[in-house]
Design a binder for these strands. Structure first.
Lengths: 235, 235
DNA sequence: CCAAAAGTGTTGGTAGTACACCCATGA
DNA sequence: TCATGGGTGTACTACCAACACTTTTGG
């Protein structure tokens, strides 16, 4: 069947970053050519014949934005026949996170029209990219509850308040500071360091913490991660 | 770029069914032509230019197996360049469930070489289909914990013991019968009927229950479904 | 009357939530 | 010394886990 192959395959990446002041931001690029010329879009491009999907995303992100990704996972594949007005393009969307230090966009790439947008101040997006973004945001919120992706959005060493703020931002609510801290410490997911944050305005200096990866993988294997349902009821 | 388009797009569906005696089964079809001639494979096929991905899966499942799907969701997209020895094929895999009554395979389709296999008695699979199946099984186990997909695997009316058995099978452990029942009743996800199962051997006859969809969507919206983390801590 | 499966209630432990005061620094 | 943000402990509650006996049917 189908000798004539008119379905094209692309990858797109929704890249999230976090800054205490601006909250969650997404990385977008401005389209230089029609359709949707002048609109903003999620970075991405076509998959080459010899490369894997992950390679394609990584390559496109490097070419178009130059950011350093700290976390990447597949999100969803969008395949409605009319999602691109020109031809049939099926897009495998990825979900990516960057640390604050990775925020700088490389000026050396030609596409210096990449820009960060706070998720509550988004411009109109090209194609079905608003929908893709919505799915990505849902994933972000869901995932932060049972996997420590929050750490991928913070610097390696961070004060507890940053983690706390991040959770409140992503989940859109307030969480008791003390209970929040107890939870993470009890799970052992964070390690207390003997360092303090160097001056961040007024107030008592904050102790720094670090994500405990070993502990994380341990919990993950035993399945006791963030105890969902039936934490010990299943024997 | 890429005027010459050599990447082909396929959809595959991992269909799970449940029978108290055999446990979880998967629907496979026997390959009639090389490569992997004689091996078993997950049903699927190429996407046509005018149809959506979901339409493609549905069509292929109907053509190849004739089963009636009760639940369908996208699973993952597999795109390693060498996953098919002939040419580059990227496969969007779907995750599907059928009710016991849908087990019968339509004999009228040409591919009457579709067959159910218990997941602990699988034949060697073609391509990377063992990997796809593994991902699907992980999804099944994960999902049954926080969404009531269990109900999609049972008849509309079922005795509580069936639901209980299903959970024990999927999760691979024993769960206290009384606590399990309490959990579901408290959440209000099951409705007690005034019917009993007509004779199933010896023992006291079991009352029948039914899944309460309204209640489910209610819980889902308020986010209190199977209380994950922070059931009420986020204000 | 025995075996098999279904039905039901109580108790103790523990984890989660709510909540308020003190401490260290910069201005 | 005041404002700002960081640090800590306790009491109450509610959910979960553990557990055993009774009931109804078929053979």
């Amino acid at each position: 069947m189908s000798d004539k192959n008119n379905i094209h395959l692309a990858v797109d990446a929704v890249v999230f970053g976090y800054q205490p002041q601006k909250g969650i931001s997404v990385l977008l690029i401005e389209r230089k050519y029609p359709p949707f010329k002048g609109n903003w879009a999620i970075p991405g491009g076509f998959v080459l014949e010899h490369e894997s999907l992950e390679e394609a995303v990584t390559r496109e992100l490097a070419e178009e934005t130059g950011v350093k990704i700290t976390y990447l996972e597949q999100l969803y594949t969008f395949g409605k026949p009319d999602r691109d007005p020109r031809k049939r393009i099926v897009a495998v969307a990825y979900f990516a996170l960057v640390r604050p230090e990775g925020f700088s966009l490389s000026a050396d790439t030609d596409a210096s029209d990449a820009k960060w947008f706070a998720i509550d101040e988004l411009p109109p997006l090209a194609f079905d990219h608003d929908q893709i973004l919505k799915v990505a945001l849902t994933r972000l919120r869901g995932k932060i509850l049972y996997e420590p992706i929050g750490f991928e959005l913070l610097d390696e060493k961070f004060p507890f308040s940053s983690l706390h703020q991040l959770y409140e931002t992503v989940l859109g609510g307030t969480i008791d500071r003390r209970n929040f801290k107890k939870k993470f410490l009890k799970l052992g997911l964070v390690e207390e360091l003997n360092e303090q944050r160097k001056q961040a305005g007024s107030g008592r200096p904050a102790r720094l913490y670090r994500f405990n990866e070993e502990r994380y993988f341990g919990l993950k294997q035993t399945g006791n991660l963030f105890e969902l349902w039936l934490p010990s009821g299943v024997k």
